[in-house]
């Protein structure tokens, strides 16, 4: 209401406008409150975990074994495999997604674009559980037939990572395409006028100009990969293990949370509160990534007039 401009002819403000405005405000407020509520609960329950006699913060951060049932609370094995699967996913999604984006915005005709984009969007609409079974029943056997059953275990982080990469591909492609398309047409035309080919223009002019948007895309995709749950729960393995071999099974943070909450463990146990500590950790990681991505796009955002 503060922002409403007084009507030039002095008519009074209509009542239904006020009602609509406050209703909309209420809904906006609700989503903020929900976020706040989640954060509060995460912190509260995590405090229960860290205040338990068995757990110390240094043990949590630097311990190399995770098995809360027998008092081992080192988060490194879980964190390590979360990072492994996410990195593999990014290795798949970044080159592919960026290529798709460049093709769509710089090369594709309007007709191809109208076919490819909806297909990408279909890919984005597939439930993640389907991707999970795709990893388990297609990607894992494929990897095993390529590298040998001796090398690749039944549950492994490589298969899960690759499939997460496929899963976030549409996200990377569409966001990167938006970032690239946002570069003003004049820049391209100027480059062409100076005699550059389309490829030269794309790689020397357009991509650097779109860098802030692209970095934001990559970081968002990374936090999506870190938070991905169903695929790793099904395909990455169900036992914490500190390994750098992507062909071995190792449980991720999200995978552990699913396994423990699926069996509804006792509310008073340290197992149960541990999943909140892990949730908080995930939240902090993805929140930091989002903050960085925002500050990058704010800092390097270029205005072209």
């Amino acid at each position: 209401m503060k922002n409403t401009v007084p009507h030039p002819y002095g008519k009074r403000i209509r009542l239904h406008e006020t009602v609509i405005e406050s209703l909309l405000f209420l809904f906006a407020l609700m989503s903020v409150m929900i976020t706040v509520g989640i954060v509060v609960i995460l912190f509260k329950e995590s405090m229960l975990f860290f205040s338990s006699d068995e757990v110390t913060l240094s043990q949590f951060l630097f311990g190399t074994k995770w098995q809360p049932m027998i008092g081992q609370f080192g988060v490194l094995p879980l964190l390590n495999s979360t990072i492994t699967t996410s990195l593999i996913a990014m290795l798949v999604a970044l080159p592919l997604g960026l290529s798709v984006a460049i093709y769509l915005s710089e090369y594709a005709t309007a007709k191809t674009k109208s076919i490819v984009k909806p297909i990408l969007e279909i890919l984005a609409g597939i439930p993640t559980i389907v991707y999970g079974y795709f990893a388990l029943t297609f990607m894992t056997p494929l990897l095993r037939s390529i590298f040998g059953e001796e090398v690749v275990q039944m549950y492994n982080t490589a298969s899960a990572g690759i499939v997460i990469g496929i899963l976030i591909l549409p996200l990377v492609a569409t966001m990167a395409e938006d970032a690239i398309s946002a570069v003003p047409k004049e820049l391209r035309l100027a480059s062409h006028a100076l005699g550059s080919t389309v490829a030269e223009t794309t790689f020397h002019i357009v991509l650097p100009a779109a860098l802030s948007g692209l970095s934001a895309t990559f970081l968002l995709a990374l936090s999506r990969a870190i938070g991905e749950t169903m695929v790793v729960a099904l395909a990455a393995g169900a036992g914490p293990k500190l390994t750098f071999n992507p062909f071995e099974g190792a449980e991720t943070i999200t995978g552990y949370i699913v396994r423990i909450s699926g069996g509804d463990v006792s509310y008073n146990s340290v197992d149960y509160t541990s999943i909140f500590a892990l949730g908080l950790m995930l939240f902090i990681i993805t929140f930091t990534l989002n903050l960085i991505s925002r500050s990058i796009s704010a800092k390097y955002h270029m205005e072209y007039e």
Binding site: I70, Y155, G239, K241
Partner: peptide
Amino acid sequence: DATAMLSAENVQLSE
């Protein structure tokens, strides 16, 4: 005493 079983290497647990 579940300690030995849970602290073994290469353990995958599932309900």
